[in-house]
Amino acid sequence: MTAREATIRRLRAERPRSRFLRASGWAVVGLVAVSWALGGFLAEPAWSAGRAANLRRLLHEVVPYPLQGADWSWSVAATWLGGIWRDYLGEATFSTLATSVAAILLAGSLGAFLVPWAARGFACPEPFLTDPVAPRWPVRLAWGAVVVVARALLTLLRSIPEYVWAFLLIALYGPTAWPLVLALALHNAGILGKLTADLVEHLEQPTLAALRGLGARRRQIVFAGIFPLSVNRFLLYLFYRWETCVREATVLGMLGLASLGFWIQDARARNHYDEMVLVMAAGGLLVTAGDLVSALARELVRRT
């Protein structure tokens, strides 16, 4: 064995290993294998004559109705598109966009409000001081409880999918825009709150400890220390989550409230698959446009 081989072997033997990671890896492989083995996904052949006929019918019905069985004509297609846009598509596209904007702003506010209670370095007897005068145990216990409750609330908010929140809230509010806005806002407040709380826990401690050491009160630390240090990352998260808000806002309407999803469900119920696919495409364009705007906005924030 040459010296080089010996070195390679030694390095291999010394590589960092974690039993937990290895077990997790095998657990993932096992889970996927068992799912495919027992899930019945291939119980019947994926492709059959019936499904081929379904696909042919779908592809036929996806063609704009005035053009089905006729020669393709751009002017007829444009008239068809313009009619639907004026009928409902334009309004639905804008209300979907507005839903996502209102939701993300509400989510950002609610999430930011919960951050000071959920960030461990801050929600403690002496924020950010590494070596404080030991406070009495009831004080420590009380702050510990605050963090646990705030974190549990954030977990509850984000574990329930937007669609389920919307389903539950529609029953409460009836047909206004609030249930959709609130559903998106609650789920994303959980995510933004958690991400930002984690961020605050990992901020430069010395700066913030110095503020406290100088005798700054909590409110002063929040506005003079935490806000300027974390606002850029917070805005990046906000725009990232806004992209998903646009995506989700297109489907939440399927529960029966005015947004693109409502008209998708409506066209599906009327068996007008051409309109259904058109609304889906409008949603896809809106999502893509949202991604672009968000990427531009994030670039702007990064430069500041």
């Binding site: 297109t250 489907v251 696919v277 889906m280």
Partner: peptide
């Protein structure tokens, strides 16, 4: 850009 629920709606029509 097409949400998984919308893919589901399309695939339901075939599968």
């Amino acid at each position: 850009s097409v949400h998984e629920l919308l893919w589901a709606v399309l695939l339901l029509a075939v599968f």
